[in-house]
């Protein structure tokens, strides 16, 4: 593998957990719910996926465990904010803190153990194409899944009636309720989907990115995923582009550090986060973009009038 190909490959790997977590959160936010607990769900997915793979010996079982862990954790969020109508921002933050703590406890006995890596699945014929072959077709299950999810979500949101209902709920939950669209049920499903996706993102971290368990290994990626949703102005394809851009920035800074460029390494490590802030500022300057796409009832509590 040439250097360029290696860099491209690592960009894809760095971006995949962001794509997975962000596409889930995009659906959640499109339904009008703001779940700030992505980081917590992701780290729970990471630790449970690692444990599942260790105990069963199969990385695929690990992926399934990560998915279920993220979904279960998001169900807690859904129960608190949708059924008990707790504040979404506070609940999401609590979920993150709880997830970071709980994952540390669960993962204590797994620290330092060699991980089970998710095997590479080569697409016959295509994975041998020069330069892009391995990058696009010599990847693992989660990479293919992340792309499929973006395509699927884009199709679901803008081509199906169920997706239309979900967007309608996000735009105006009162009117949607008056039209007989099941607001709470749809939001529960969206939150569960978001949790499952965050769990998969976590599984990618502990089974592909660095196949071992390290405490706090999500390292703020859940927050970047949240920012990516805004960056993408709640549109799936822009989200994919944004995730690879951020992947490129984080990999680029590593290579720059390795080349010994005379900039403090701390500053280089800051780059992905600085880029997040910069992009958010730029995005919020285009008002029309936000007005048409931003779910108007985002983070607002819904209590049906009866």
């Amino acid at each position: 593998m040439g250097l360029f190909e290696a860099i491209l490959f690592s960009v894809m790997t760095a971006a995949t957990p962001l794509v997975l977590a962000a596409i889930g959160e995009l659906v959640v936010e499109r339904s009008g719910v703001l779940n700030l607990g992505v980081e917590g769900m992701m780290i729970m997915g990471a630790v449970v996926a690692f444990a599942g793979a260790q105990l069963s010996g199969s990385a695929f079982v690990g992926v399934l465990c990560g998915l279920l862990a993220g979904a279960a954790f998001s169900l807690l969020f859904g129960f608190l904010t949708l059924t008990l109508v707790a504040n979404q921002v506070a609940t999401g933050l609590a979920l993150t803190i709880l997830g970071l703590g709980l994952s540390g406890m669960i993962g204590e006995r797994f620290i330092g153990l060699p991980g089970v890596r998710l095997p590479v699945l080569n697409v016959p014929g295509l994975s041998d194409v020069p330069i892009v072959g391995r990058v696009l077709f010599g990847q693992d299950l989660l990479f293919y899944l992340s792309i499929a999810l973006v395509v699927g979500v884009a199709w679901f949101l803008f081509r199906t009636r169920a997706g239309l209902k979900l967007r309608a709920i996000g735009d105006n939950h009162g009117s949607a309720h008056a039209l007989g669209v099941p607001v709470i049920r749809t939001r529960y499903l969206a939150v569960l989907f978001g949790g499952a996706c965050a769990g998969l993102a976590g599984a990618h971290l502990s089974l592909v990115y660095t196949p071992q368990w390290v405490e706090n290994m999500s390292a703020g990626r859940g927050w970047i995923a949240l920012a990516l949703v805004v960056f993408a102005s709640w549109r799936p394809w822009r989200l994919l582009a944004g995730a690879y851009l951020f992947g490129a920035v984080s990999i680029g800074q590593l290579h720059a550090q390795a080349l010994g460029i005379g900039i403090p390494s701390q500053f280089m490590s800051m780059l992905p986060y600085l880029a997040t802030i910069l992009v958010l500022v730029l995005i919020s300057m285009d008002r029309r973009l936000t007005l048409i796409n931003r779910p108007a009832s985002l983070a607002q509590p819904f209590v049906p009038e009866r």
């Binding site: 009636r161 239309l164 209902k165 967007r167 309608a168 735009d171 105006n172 009162g174 009117s175 949607a176 008056a178 039209l179 669209v181 007005l291 048409i292 796409n293 931003r294 779910p295 108007a296």
Partner: peptide, 22 residues
């Protein structure tokens, strides 16, 4: 309704579709 129960971010056809047979 007096205060329209429309979805501003959606198109006219999408708004209508929401209240019709799937």
């Amino acid at each position: 309704f007096q205060h329209f129960s429309l979805f501003e971010a959606l198109t006219v056809a999408e708004n209508i579709a929401l209240s019709l047979d799937e």
